[in-house]
């Protein structure tokens, strides 16, 4: 293990971190506004990835064209799940919402499996030759993931700081009651938050599938590190999710220098727990 190997692992870590970041931003936005940990988020990722895969495999479209289709699918299914199920449970106890999101996760996963079958699939046929930068290797997919994440994160930032709806989301996240007496239509903002969270989850799913493969379990397996990233960033703080995602991603990959890869999720949690002992409200969380 030398410096080059560590740098190589850091690159893989940033790629994984990008995927976790996109998932964690959505989880955090939703939690910030609804105080609700959505366990179906991972399966929205899966659904988005398969929707994009359908476009790639039937229309032979390039992945970057299929990505928006996957994101729209993720947004629509998230909004539908909210309107059909969660909206009706919003005034009940939080645990009921939580469990219903488990149910939603199973429903979405089963649907994916019903339509596309249980076997692994892949966006890329054959093997794409990696590009060499000195001794470091980066595959074209990984560059797409990095570039795509940067573009999406900047777009989300501009949305949250420059648009009326984006600012209303931040206001709702700060104080829902005050937002309502300020004249903000809470239900409308909630629908848009689901749409945004779902679209970001789907993008994370497409990128995860590009980096690895498509399986019906892919999103569910990514859910725990995504929550770790969101919690680390200060749950409910979308900007914290970026920092949290990167730290968890890099730490997970770097850990393989000394630990077997099977310990990656454990590393994610260890990092989260240690950091939370030091900063109990997350890296960007406010003191309470």
């Amino acid at each position: 293990m030398d410096v080059t190997d560590l740098l190589q692992l850091a690159i893989y870590g940033v790629v994984l971190g990008s995927i976790l970041t996109l998932g964690a931003i959505g989880v955090s936005l939703l939690f910030g506004i609804l105080r609700f940990s959505n366990f179906a988020h991972g399966d929205i990722m899966t659904l988005g990835a398969y929707a994009a895969f359908a476009v790639v495999s039937t229309l032979h479209a390039p992945v970057w064209l299929a990505l928006p289709v996957g994101m729209i699918a993720g947004a629509l299914v998230s909004v539908a799940a909210d309107q059909l199920v969660y909206r009706r449970l919003r005034r009940t106890q939080p645990v009921i919402l939580l469990i219903s999101s488990f149910g939603m996760a199973l429903i979405i996963r089963s649907l994916v499996q019903l339509v596309w079958g249980p076997q692994d699939r892949s966006f890329v046929k054959g093997i794409d030759m990696p590009m060499h930068f000195g001794d470091l290797m980066v595959s074209p997919q990984q560059l797409w993931i990095l570039g795509g994440t940067i573009v999406i994160v900047i777009a989300v930032h501009l949305f949250l700081t420059r648009t009326r709806m984006g600012k209303a989301m931040r206001a709702m996240s700060d104080n829902m009651d005050l937002a309502r007496v300020t004249g903000i239509d809470a239900e409308k903002v909630i629908v848009w938050t689901w749409a945004l969270g779902g679209a970001l989850a789907a993008a994370a799913g497409v990128f995860l599938a590009l980096d690895t493969r498509l399986t019906p379990m892919m999103g569910w397996s990514a859910l725990l590190p995504i929550f770790a990233a969101a919690i680390l960033g200060g749950f409910g703080k979308p900007y914290g999710a970026i920092v949290g995602g990167m730290i968890i991603g890099v730490a997970s990959e770097m850990s393989t220098a000394v630990l077997p890869p099977a310990y990656k999720p454990a590393t994610a949690f260890a990092v989260m727990v240690i950091m939370l002992v030091v900063k109990p409200n997350g890296l960007l969380g406010a003191r309470r």
Binding site: R164, K167, A168, D174
Partner: peptide, 22 residues
């Protein structure tokens, strides 16, 4: 309201903009 009557993470200007949301 009596307490918690600003959006703490938002700037003064953004707070005022929210007031004009409608």
């Amino acid at each position: 309201p009596q307490e918690k009557n600003v959006f703490p993470s938002m700037t003064v200007q953004e707070n005022l903009e929210m007031g004009a949301y409608l």
